[in-house]
Amino acid sequence: MIAYLFRRLLVAGSTLVGITLVTFVVLHLTPGEPALGLDVETRGPDPATIQALRTRYGLDRPLAVQYLDWAGRVARLDFGRSMVDHRPVRTRILERLPRTLALNLAALGIIFTVAIPLGALSAARRDSAIDRAAGFTLSTLYALPSFWVALLLQAGLAVGLGWFPLAGPASEGAAAWNLPARWLDGLWHMALPVFCLSYGSLAFVARFARANLLEALASESVRSARSRGLGPGRVLWRHALGQSWIPFLTLAGLLLPTLVSGSVLIERIFAWPGLGALLYESLFTRDYPTILGLTVLSATLVVAGTLITDILYLLADPRLRRPARAS
């Protein structure tokens, strides 16, 4: 088991190095210079300025040297400075990370609390009117493009009825308020973007829950539980759900990286200063250190998610503990 864990860690580590290496090389080979704060319609920067930028950020060294230097610093959690605003990349990311986390945690929370009971209900009442209605509604929601829904919500609930703020993370002057008021204000501003981020995934998670529960309901242990005379509710919640926790863990592991991957469109429409907007701006301005910093962040979570899932599998499934078969 130790050997297995060690091997998984090794794979995870080399995956990370691979991802950063490929991103680094592709990024530096893409045409275009860092933007240097020029408006898009103006002429490009003069050669002396380009040279000064290259010297300042070591872009004139061989690519391999640049990568090793960068990787060495990243290992010490130093992501360098942005070539656009010259602040540490870590500061820039940490400034926006809480906003993106808040939005995505809320969205994931809603997705799971709504979709799993809904999926369970659909499974328990398979092919009933409820099951069909849920399936139809969720698929319809899934099919609605989120930017369009976002604009509709803005027009209806923000401009029309004035129930929700139109955009931005906080009300004017909110910074001076006390903590509970600031929290409430923040939640109020999150409502529309969180809805837009979550409704589309309801269908996926609900269907996932339904399929897994149906499988569990058909299994030996559930049938035996039923034959022991346990009521349908108890069978569903205790036995069927209890059995399908591994697939749900896998799903959670897969969804871990989405916590930090901001949605560019939703963040833009709701003027939400998150990581999606940062990545978009950084790509547009060719801000290499920031793009790489964000890549490391999401790649780490992808790899960590997989690793955690693997380990949980290991704990849940004794067959995997045998060293020779583990893969």
Binding site: G160, L161, W163, G173, A176, W177, A181, R182, L184, D185
Partner: peptide
């Protein structure tokens, strides 16, 4: 129609204890 926003803002300001000094 703008009433709801006004209510929400008032609520928020009430929670905050006092309005912002520059609000006027």
């Amino acid at each position: 129609m703008k009433g709801h926003a006004a209510i929400a803002v008032t609520l928020m300001a009430a929670l905050a204890g006092c309005g912002t000094p520059e609000s006027g």
